[in-house]
Amino acid sequence: MLANKDGKVFVGQRLDAAASKYPDAWQMPQGGIDDGEDAETAALRELEEETGVTANHVTIIARCADEYLYDLPVELLGKIWKGKYRGQRQSWFLMRFNGDDAHINIQTAHAEFSSWKWTNPEDLPEMIVPFKRDLYRSVLKEFEPLI
């Protein structure tokens, strides 16, 4: 979760959103951990790969106390992630963005977003795909006092 100094949170609209069942869905940056990589290093790498925001423009405020899990809905099983996974296990970090909007560039080598914006944290759960809403509510509940 990337929060700016005004208490707003970064969300991006996935490049594949228009072709999906959820064309109006937005999400926060996220990604996997490479072999031999720790979670904090992965979070900073994924942030840069998806938003162009480098580690020198953020301060890590917190890491979630527990991992969060979600399952894919039945209609998506076998259709995404080459059918290898039924859901995800996630560990979230709250980062304060210390840069300017000019430091955000979603046209990266690993582009995932077609557009981005800052949004109010309380609006996050309704912006995400329905099967991730409970996860977003939980992350928000944990991080909200720190945003």
Rank of each mutant, 00 (worst) to 15 (best):
M1P: 10
N4P: 07
K5L: 10
D6S: 10
K8N: 09
V9L: 11
V9F: 06
F10H: 12
F10S: 03
L15W: 09
D16C: 01
D16Q: 08
A19Y: 08
S20L: 08
K21G: 06
D24I: 03
D24S: 14
A25G: 14
A25L: 12
W26M: 07
Q27K: 10
M28P: 01
P29G: 04
P29A: 05
P29T: 03
Q30R: 15
Q30A: 12
G31D: 05
G31Q: 08
G32C: 09
I33D: 00
I33L: 06
D34N: 07
D35C: 11
D38P: 05
E40N: 09
E46K: 07
L47Y: 04
E48G: 02
E50C: 06
E50H: 13
G52E: 08
V53F: 03
T54M: 13
T54R: 14
A55C: 05
A55S: 12
A55R: 15
N56L: 02
N56I: 01
H57T: 11
H57P: 03
V58G: 00
V58D: 00
T59R: 05
I60T: 13
I60S: 05
I61K: 06
I61F: 04
C64N: 12
C64P: 03
D66N: 15
E67L: 05
E67T: 11
Y68L: 05
L69A: 03
Y70R: 08
D71I: 01
L72I: 00
L72T: 00
E75V: 08
L76W: 14
L76E: 05
G78I: 00
K79G: 00
I80T: 08
W81K: 14
K82Y: 09
G83Q: 10
K84H: 12
K84P: 06
K84T: 09
K84D: 11
Y85W: 13
Y85V: 12
Y85R: 15
R86L: 13
R86I: 08
R86V: 10
Q88W: 15
R89H: 08
Q90D: 15
S91V: 14
S91A: 15
W92F: 10
W92R: 04
F93W: 13
M95H: 04
M95C: 10
R96P: 00
D100V: 12
A102K: 08
A102T: 13
H103K: 10
N105R: 15
T108L: 09
A111K: 13
E112R: 14
S114W: 04
W116L: 02
W116C: 00
K117W: 04
K117T: 01
T119L: 05
T119F: 03
N120A: 13
E122V: 08
D123E: 10
D123S: 13
L124Y: 01
E126C: 05
I128L: 04
I128P: 00
V129G: 01
V129H: 03
V129W: 03
R133A: 07
R133I: 00
D134W: 05
D134M: 05
Y136Q: 10
R137G: 07
R137S: 12
S138L: 12
K141E: 15
K141M: 14
K141F: 14
E142F: 13
F143P: 01
F143L: 04
E144S: 11
P145N: 09
L146K: 11
L146T: 01
I147Y: 07
I147D: 03
